[in-house]
């Protein structure tokens, strides 16, 4: 009699524990997204993908997991390294599976929640769908979505974590991409010396040369590198000579509109000290080289931004030696060490 009673009492537990084995319980712990007060409005729609601790953790794991590539060795982080504001350190052009050389310099992953579209030419117009490009590119990760999903389904960590991160718990492309977005949306860099200075935090002040640089920057650069994101998010042709080996036509590739020839997204200059080499093809190693280019290296490639035309008809932004030095000093105040060392975003 006693035996029967124990069975009766315990049987529900047995059943329920069985069913819980396969699917973890979904108890969302919301993650708070804090928009810095000196930033423009967020562009990413969080309502469609509410941030949770488990979703963020899942996204981070995916970002650092080689399984997302054909040879299981090229994770996102291979080309997006934290110490260099998530760029591909030391590479003008990134390379991926089978040593394939990509066509462009890897962009930093920071403040993407505030961006309307992505990539140097704006080929990606939704953050959730952006990872499909590197994932399936022959030159980068060389995978297919369905194959990646099969690999994730066979992994016990993912079997559990998708259940914790999403109500339906399904291991599918939709949830994988949402998790990657949650991770990337949280990657906000907004605690540089410059930020603290403009937000008047911690009594931070700029040195004379930094302050002079900021003024020059505001007069000569901020039309394009606008707002505290340092990009107006438009596509512009800043007069780089055309590299015939790549003949990268930039934004033209997308809408095939001749007005877009050789236009590229105005890049944010945050953490610029660490995101070298510079420009879409990584042609400049140093900031000195960039400023020499603006001052005296521009080429009339047929479609240069009209605002860069000087009175004498040549293209460029005239800068004295001191102006160059001070602009560089200012640009270095955009380095955000808290972000570059933030444990939340590191692999270990």
């Amino acid at each position: 009699m006693k035996k029967i009673l124990t069975i009766v009492i315990f049987s529900p537990f047995i059943f329920s524990s069985c069913s819980k084995d396969d699917s973890a319980v979904y108890v969302p712990k919301p993650l708070h997204f804090e928009a810095p007060s000196n930033f423009p409005d967020i562009a990413y729609n969080l309502d469609n993908n509410p941030l949770t601790e488990a979703g963020f953790e899942l996204g981070k794991k995916l970002f650092y997991d080689g399984k997302l590539s054909a040879n299981n060795a090229i994770p996102c982080a291979f080309c997006h390294e934290q110490a260099f504001a998530f760029t591909h350190h030391g590479h003008t052009l990134s390379h991926g599976v089978n040593g394939g050389i990509g066509l462009r310099n890897a962009q930093p992953i920071q403040n993407l929640a505030f961006q309307k579209d992505f990539m140097w030419d704006g080929a990606a117009s939704h953050l959730d769908l952006q990872p499909i490009i590197p994932l399936t590119s022959e030159l980068e990760m060389g995978e297919t979505l369905s194959n990646v999903i099969e690999k994730l389904k066979a992994d016990s960590y993912y079997q559990k974590q998708f259940g914790l991160a999403f109500e339906d718990g399904d291991i599918n492309a939709s949830n994988m991409l949402k998790a990657l977005s949650q991770f990337m949306v949280m990657m906000v860099s907004s605690n540089s010396k410059y930020d603290k200075y403009v937000r008047q935090e911690e009594n931070v002040s700029l040195s004379q040369i930094e302050w002079d640089g900021l003024n020059t920057f505001q007069n000569k650069c901020a039309t394009c590198h606008a707002t505290d994101l340092f990009s107006d998010q438009s596509y512009r042709n800043n007069g780089l000579s055309i590299n015939p080996r790549l003949n990268d036509t930039g934004r033209f590739k997308i809408l095939e509109n001749s007005e877009d020839l050789y236009k590229f997204k105005v890049p944010s200059l945050r953490n610029i000290e660490f995101t070298f080499p510079y420009m879409h093809d990584g042609r400049f190693e140093t900031l000195e080289a960039v400023l020499d280019f603006y001052d005296a290296g521009m080429t009339d490639n047929g479609n240069v931004d009209i605002s860069l035309k000087r009175d004498d008809g040549s293209f460029g932004i005239s800068l004295s030696t001191y102006e160059k030095e001070s602009v560089i000093a200012f640009l270095k105040t955009l380095t955000d060490n808290e972000f570059l060392n933030d444990k939340r975003f590191s692999e270990f």
Binding site: N49, D128, L129, A173, S174, L177
Partner: peptide, 11 residues
């Protein structure tokens, strides 16, 4: 909607 609510259709 991005990836939201796309289930397996993306794959």
């Amino acid at each position: 909607l991005g990836a939201d609510g796309q289930g397996d259709f993306l794959a």
